[in-house]
Amino acid sequence: MTNIVVAVKYVPDATADRTFSSDNTVDRDNVDGLLSELDEYAVEQALQVVEAGEGEVTVLTVGPEDAADAVRKALQMGADKGVHVVDDAIHGSDAFATSLVLAKAIEKLEYDFVFFGMGSTDGSMGIVPTLVAERLGLPAVTFGSEVTVDGDSVTIRRDGDAATQEISASGKVVVSVTDQTGEARYPSFKGIMAAKKKPVDTWSLSDLGVDAGEVGLENAWTKVESFEPRPPRTAGEIVTDEGDGGVKLVEFLASKKFV
């Protein structure tokens, strides 16, 4: 029996025009959201582990009402049940508060491993897995490009700049996986239908014993003071290669003193 909790995030679509709200937080209202692409890899890896033996995959998210969409997508892919922590007080939480809420929720669940994506596609800090592990006092094997589960131990391959490492941990373990772990499956028609009957629990902060004063924008340990859009790039010169494209390219580089 292997039970895995996969923590996922509902993010603004990276291909849309993402922006900020008036309180300098990420605008989650006016941009379509979805399950973070990078979390799909974590769902996929968890499903593969459970499918190879026995157990359950529970998908967990912390986010506004709409974040239920992210849970549903993971259920359609094949996760067994969902937990959605939703509470107005959570709005604007930093990574530390998010990790607190996640850790408290995970403690209420039965699990052997907790899987994460390598980072979100909006905040992209990539630190929530390590923070959750720190809070739960569990080992963390992070940024795995390849994940192998054997009984109660997990081994990952971590491709760093300086070295490729193999890292192992056993017992309850926090794992994060990269997009190198392999394509995530698309929900099948059967999966989409089955997901409608799968249970999703909705929890508030009080269900977790988390005080509203520990989370939210007012209690964040950092502050975004201002934001500005990057100035649009001025249209450049485009030439069509008519046998002299390479020379023209070098002429441009020379005019900019790169050659």
């Binding site: 790039r233 450049g236 030439v239 069509t240 290669d241 494209g245 390479g246 580089l253």
Partner: peptide
């Protein structure tokens, strides 16, 4: 990608790049 560029060549890199490489070597 052409929306971002300061300079762009519409063409096959398999012919454009070798010519550019040769031109740089010549200039050097």
């Amino acid at each position: 990608i052409f929306e971002l560029v300061d300079f762009g060549v519409v063409g096959d890199l398999k012919t454009v790049l070798p010519q550019a490489t040769e031109e740089i070597v010549k200039r050097k």
